[in-house]
Design a protein around this nucleic acid. Structure first.
Lengths: 235, 235
DNA sequence: CGGCGAATTGAAATGCATCAAATTGGGTGG
DNA sequence: CCACCCAATTTGATGCATTTCAATTCGCCG
């Protein structure tokens, strides 16, 4: 690793935050920085499970697909989040970069040893895994019971929260919030279990109703947050 | 607890299996046996998170619903599985009994202390939580991309595997496998994100094609496992 | 300015939901 | 033991949201 952990932008939020300086130095020696270009894949579903990582910058997707090629994005990862699946010989899902990204990568076997040696880190990972499980279970409800309109409105809301600090987010205190979606229409469709056309139509409808503005092809401005929340089914 | 852990039918498979006899006695003092009748609910989504448990017998559902009452079952629990969400002040999902059930219940705060004192148990819980996360992510693909026919065929297959030993499963070595579904049509619909009518029609279709027989209202006989797997989209 | 992938828009097809009615079957009391 | 009852299931007819197929249009980069 060229850069040191002390410089790390996500140090406080990441799993490594549970380690003291000495422990961090030990972990540091096991890992290395890795850059990924948009579209690049670092793990394929069904392949051998070789690495774990902390995401430093960018957005990654976790995806699965049916035998005949229908795809579903089963999770999105933002900076400081843990990527990987300790205690498993193969990986169930593919990991790819939706934007250019930078990670701190560790060999899985060595990472598991570190986990075994540091209770605080193992505890933190358990808590995060429970949180991820809850989030994924909540998405089951959304994917199977929400309408296309609710899905798209809810997605824009969740991206507005999470994208803050990721993409250039121009939020004025009382004015409208503007940010760039890190996903194409097709990727949004793969997250929500819809088609590109349906996502596009729903966004157009929100624009027509004055709830959103769509400056440029990735940009979004939330003009009426309350209306957006209502359309997401959050009352 | 009237019955002792030594008698416990699920001792080897459950989390407690990671404890030695002395540790088990300590955990034993914290918990108690609890019986649930079919339909009974032990935790409501949004309520305070007070207990964890091991399921001894029966089948439980974990469910969420939208503001306007659409329900989705986000998980099913079978005997020996761990129920609960350590490290959270409220629960996100309701827990109810699909059949009469029996649990070994522990106060959440005390259970967390035990977890903190026994690395083996914490490790085992982390592994199980990762497995549950993978399973839930896989269900995202099924719910959003599979057709009703694929969902129902896949559900029957998964219940055939899991129900073995739960309900009276009469499997002859080479002959057809027969078992009882622990869920009503309505509950199956809530698992698969369909309606009662669609589930019924798909089962009828499988019966008409000679893939299944439906002896009685809960019974299922798999006459042609290969055809069922093909219809589930497993090639 | 020209090219090309991504996004939008339109028209038609379809799978599942919805609404409605008939049937089954397990349990109860006469 | 049988008749009845009620809830669950099945079956039928119709509607609609979303997909599918098919053109444009947009916006970015050379």
């Amino acid at each position: 690793m060229t850069a040191v952990c002390a410089d790390c932008a996500v140090r406080r939020q990441a799993l490594c935050g549970s380690l003291d300086d000495g422990e961090l130095a030990a972990l540091h020696r096991l890992g290395w920085r890795h850059r990924m270009a948009r579209g690049e894949t670092m793990a394929w579903a069904g392949a051998e499970n070789v690495a774990c990582a902390t995401l430093l910058s960018g957005v990654l997707k976790l995806s699965a697909s049916t035998a005949d090629g229908r795809e579903q994005i089963v999770g999105l990862h933002f900076p400081s989040e843990f990527i990987g699946r300790p205690y498993g010989d193969t990986v169930e899902f593919s990991v790819s970069a939706l934007t250019d990204a930078e990670l701190c990568v560790f060999p899985r076997d060595r990472f598991q040893e570190v986990l075994g040696a540091h209770r605080g880190m193992e505890r933190m990972l358990l808590q995060r895994t429970f949180a991820a499980l809850d989030a994924t279970r909540s998405r089951l409800l959304v994917l199977s019971r929400n309408t296309a309109a609710e899905k798209v409105a809810g997605f824009v809301l969740s991206m507005a929260e999470r994208a803050r600090g990721i993409s250039d987010c121009r939020a004025s205190a009382d004015g409208p919030v503007t940010f760039d979606l890190p996903l194409t229409r097709g990727e949004i469709a793969d997250v929500l279990g819809l088609t590109i056309e349906t996502v596009s139509r729903q966004l157009t409808k929100l624009k027509g109703a004055g709830v959103l503005a769509l400056p440029g092809v990735r940009g979004v401005t939330i003009r009426d947050p309350a209306a957006l929340r209502a359309r997401a089914g959050l009352l």
